[in-house]
């Protein structure tokens, strides 16, 4: 088989790129749906609370930690790799918790994301953010498995394709959130 020759992209990395196209289309569908709906009746834009800025910073810093984790993996420094991976996972949990906290701010101000009398803008934000959280969780599960293996597996793997694919996905999910954040900020 001709795959895995040096100059070619790893087939799993390639599959990841195609599936990122797929994920982009899903979120593009949601955000363009918002644009269509915005031009119809009963539309009120809500200001984004500052908690979402925090979320963005947390998620972006997790991009930084996974980048460093990858660097240390390539340097065969497994101690730092494991530590930075754990920090990345922790940061993503902070992110998720903070996202829910940010939504509770709306509810405290008597603005409803879902349910009766919910605001259309917030419903869109809620659905989009939930779907995004699911994508973050997907990355967390994959990274956790990798870290778990790095701690407990008797077979040591030094192939960097997994961490490369994982960190690419991680950066993608971060950029996706930045896009969504800016979209909801300025729409």
């Amino acid at each position: 088989m001709l795959i895995n020759s040096k100059e070619r992209i790893h087939p799993h990395m390639f599959t990841l790129w195609v599936s990122m196209g797929s994920v982009i289309m899903m979120f593009a569908g949601l955000t363009s749906a918002l644009i269509v709906k915005k031009n119809q009746s009963a539309w009120i834009n809500i200001e984004i609370p500052y908690q979402f800025y925090f979320s963005t910073i947390i998620l972006l810093s997790s991009s930084g930690t996974i980048y460093l984790a990858k660097r240390f993996f390539n340097l065969r420094n497994m101690h730092y790799f494991r530590m930075l991976s754990l920090i990345t996972i922790l940061l993503s949990f902070f992110f998720i918790v903070n996202q829910f906290y940010a939504f509770s701010v709306f509810e405290n101000n008597n603005l409803h994301v879902f349910g009766r009398n919910s605001n259309g803008f917030l419903s869109f934000l809620g659905v989009t953010a939930l779907l995004h959280i699911l994508h973050v969780l997907g990355g967390v599960v994959a990274l956790s498995i990798m870290v778990f293996k790095a701690y407990y597996s008797s077979v040591k793997t030094y192939s960097n394709s997994r961490i490369n694919i994982l960190s690419t996905y991680w950066h993608f999910v971060d950029i996706l959130w930045v896009y969504l954040f800016l979209f909801f900020l300025f729409i």
Partner: peptide, 25 residues
């Protein structure tokens, strides 16, 4: 398929929220 099914999926997600969670998409 890879580029258009996700859009249908997002349409279905909004439909699920309208059906079950009282939103007004």
């Amino acid at each position: 398929g890879v580029l258009s099914f996700p859009v249908l999926f997002s349409g279905f997600i909004l439909l699920i929220f309208d059906r079950n969670f009282g939103t007004s998409f």
